[in-house]
Simulated assay, not measured.
Amino acid sequence: MTVVAAALVDGEGRVLLQQRAPARSMAGLWEFPGGKVEPEETPEAALVRELEEELGIQVDPAELMPACFASAPMGARHMVLLLYICRDWRGQPRALDASALRWERTRDMPEIAMPPADAPLIGLLEALLGPPAGPRPPDQR
């Protein structure tokens, strides 16, 4: 099973997480928004569709930058999770298919309860995004 997800990055370098709804498996855990790739659908098309359905935002597929992936067993099936970075979208994200949304810095994500396939992506995502924006430390020369 192929699943796609987005690390939506705001102007402050924070990433959007959504909380899984109570009626879903792994309810209450925080995850990157996204979902399953349907037959005959490209991963990018699936992610554009999922972001519209889950958050009510529109994303140009050209704005999706492949970032990293995770592989995890899901009962009798196996899941490959493809994570994309997206810094530009239209609309304000809303929790249409989740209990809540929150913006977090990658350095704070290890303390957040996340599904087993999402958690290993945090360090890779942090390396790709680089250090958080802010004042630079003084030169040590």
Rank of each mutant, 00 (worst) to 15 (best):
A5D: 12
D118L: 03
L17G: 02
P39I: 06
E31K: 14
M74I: 08
Y84S: 11
A21V: 12
V59D: 10
E52Y: 12
E63A: 11
G13T: 12
R94D: 11
V9I: 14
G123Q: 08
A127S: 10
E50P: 09
R20T: 14
G35S: 04
D88C: 10
P93N: 09
A23N: 03
W89M: 07
R87F: 12
E40Y: 06
A70N: 15
E104S: 11
D118Y: 00
E50R: 08
I85C: 01
A70S: 15
Q18P: 02
G75W: 14
L82T: 13
A76C: 13
A46S: 05
R49M: 13
L64C: 07
P120V: 00
L8T: 13
P131G: 13
A23F: 00
R87Q: 02
P39R: 04
A62Q: 10
F69D: 07
E38I: 02
K36E: 09
W30S: 12
A100T: 06
E50A: 13
A127Q: 14
V80L: 10
A62W: 01
L121C: 09
M26P: 00
D88W: 09
Q92M: 10
L8Q: 03
G123H: 11
D108H: 03
E104V: 00
D97G: 01
G56T: 13
G56H: 11
I85T: 10
Q19L: 06
G75Q: 15
P66D: 04
M79Y: 11
A5P: 15
A113D: 06
G75D: 02
T106A: 14
T106G: 12
L64H: 01
R24N: 04
P131V: 10
E12M: 04
L124N: 05
Q92A: 15
V37M: 07
P39F: 02
S99V: 02
E52N: 04
P116H: 13
Y84C: 11
M79K: 12
L55Y: 04
E104D: 05
R77P: 00
L29W: 09
M65L: 14
L121E: 05
A21H: 10
G91C: 11
P116R: 11
Q19S: 02
P66F: 06
L55T: 11
W89K: 06
W89P: 00
F69S: 11
E12A: 15
Y84A: 03
P116N: 13
M26R: 11
R102Y: 05
P43C: 10
R105D: 01
A76T: 10
E12I: 08
L17I: 09
G130S: 10
V4L: 07
M26C: 06
D118A: 05
G75C: 04
A95G: 11
G13P: 03
E31Q: 12
P43A: 08
A27R: 03
R102H: 08
P110Y: 14
R90T: 14
